[in-house]
Amino acid sequence: MCPVLGHLDDMEHRIQALYEQFGGPLLRHVRKTTGNDLQWAEDVVQETMVRAWRHSDRLQWEPGLVWAWLLTVARRIVIDGRRRRSARPREVEPPEADTVPVPDGCDRALSAIVVADALRSLSQEHREVIEQTYLRDRTISEAAEILGIPPGTVKSRLYYGIRALRGLLRDKGVAG
């Protein structure tokens, strides 16, 4: 067999094996962040699998770490997609920690109340870097410019803020 075709064949097999191992759970997880857009979620899973194949040395990690890495890769792909989709100028009110979503009886709305409450309990420095990065799909350097602080400070505050938030959410029984 031609070596190039043989290589492609091998790549296809290995990506197929990755799908069998991780595809289902990853798709279920990603769908929650694509507003149930199944096509988009499937594209995200496919891109994640291709990246996993390109860095297949990381697949030798222990399973919990591999899973955490795949979730992180997929999350970034979703965020990049959302940034592209909303590239046109628009101003929507982002979530603020001092407002609370209307409960609609579903778990997610209840969880949102708990998370909003926990965010409110953080120091302003910690809360604002979380709001200016993750909650608005902004990168570190974009948030640094808006906040007028160095990117390294944003990274550091984000680290302590996220650790503090996780501690609060654990106390409330919603984080592992």
């Binding site: 919990g64 949102a112 938030l165 996780r166």
Partner: peptide
């Protein structure tokens, strides 16, 4: 990386309209 994995998922409950 493993420990902090829950946090963005929980923030999504706030961030994303159901």
């Amino acid at each position: 990386l493993k420990e902090l994995q829950d946090v963005p998922d929980l923030l999504d409950d706030l961030k994303l309209q159901p």
